[in-house]
């Protein structure tokens, strides 16, 4: 197995390149993704390699991007749309939820809609309004969509290819604050299934679950907790719809305590769903209530306040302490 160190932006770029090479029906579309290579450079060099009919610099219209991707999928293409920033997905919300998500059902299965929508999401980059949000719950709530989020470069490389190979629409949430951290990419390895959650640190006393950029915060919190004598298990969710509960339930049966962390607001969130499901299925294993650590239920604040809005290691550890206090 060859392993290369690269940041996640580069890993996703390489995953996209592999998909474009492997299937002539794959095409990329979005704002500024061609000549510029995307505002985060995730599509850098791909237009030059594959041409303007495979890597489309589209007009500035999110509904237009998603709606025409749907038509291209009807024609047999596998479009990969980039929404430039999380908060810009809402102009495309109707096409995603009322059309893309429902079209296989409307067709009673005679047509598939293998459209991937890539969304750089989340905070920690000090940006202006609409550029740091975590809107994944809207899509996890919508039947007909799949929602995933890689936390590390290797998953970025493989999961984007798996999302493109999926015959269903996939919302692919890329934690933009993790774009530039390097990690190993095993480019001839066997990837884990797209919708599998994974234990990324083993422990015995408390289980922490999160996705995307939160996973690195959870690992840091686990390290600090270990220094204080607390053994923490960390699970990278990877898939938000469907959610793979088996590793979470197995972990809770061992630890008896669960803290779910997310950048998104907590009210009616993915973390809420996990808390409810674990309460239903592992009630007798729980030694403490399932606790959520989330963004506050405010709009994402101005950047100078993001440090107090976003859950950090201290807030995660505060929840760990509360869970242990029961």
């Amino acid at each position: 197995m060859t392993e290369r160190m690269m940041p996640m932006a580069k890993a996703i770029n390489e995953g996209l390149r592999a998909a474009l090479r492997n299937d002539p029906k794959v095409l990329l579309m979005g704002e500024d993704i061609g000549t510029l290579g995307g505002v985060f450079r995730v599509t850098e060099g791909l237009k030059a390699e594959f041409g303007e009919n495979r890597v489309l610099d589209t007009p500035l219209a999110e509904s237009g991007i998603v709606g025409t991707a749907i038509g291209l999928a009807m024609r047999g293409y596998r479009p990969v749309c980039e929404i430039q920033f999380d908060g810009f997905i809402y102009p495309g919300f109707d096409q995603i939820t009322s059309q893309l998500a429902k079209l296989t059902y409307r067709h009673e299965g005679t047509q598939s809609f293998p459209v991937v929508i890539r969304v750089p999401y989340g905070g920690h980059i000090g940006a202006v309004e609409h550029h740091q949000e975590s809107p994944e719950a809207y899509f996890a709530h919508t039947a007909g969509l799949r929602v995933v989020s890689p936390a590390a470069p290797n998953d970025g490389y493989w999961m984007i290819q798996q999302a493109i190979a999926s015959n269903d629409p996939v919302l692919f949430f890329e934690p933009k604050s993790r774009y530039w951290q390097k990690g190993e990419v095993a480019d001839d390895g066997v990837p884990a299934p797209l919708h599998q959650s994974r234990v990324v640190r083993t422990g015995t006393q408390v289980t922490l679950v999160g996705h995307g950029a939160m996973v690195s915060q959870l690992l840091q919190a686990a390290e600090v907790a270990a220094g204080e004598g607390t053994s923490v298990e960390v699970i990278d969710l990877r898939s938000l719809s469907p959610i793979d509960y088996a590793p979470i339930l197995a972990s809770v049966q061992k630890t008896g305590r669960l803290v779910v962390a997310q950048e998104a607001p907590g009210n009616v969130s993915v973390g809420s769903e996990i808390a409810a499901t674990v309460a239903e299925r592992a009630f007798y294993s729980l030694e403490a209530p399932v606790l959520r650590v989330s963004g506050f239920d405010t709009p994402f604040p101005p950047a100078k306040l993001e440090g107090v809005y976003l859950p950090d290691v201290d807030r995660i550890l505060e929840a760990v302490d509360r869970a242990l206090a029961y």
Binding site: G67, G71, A73, R75, G76
Partner: peptide, 12 residues
């Protein structure tokens, strides 16, 4: 909504 689907189809 169908206007965009048609346009995407025609792009294809």
């Amino acid at each position: 909504s169908q206007a965009l689907h048609a346009t995407g189809y025609a792009m294809g």
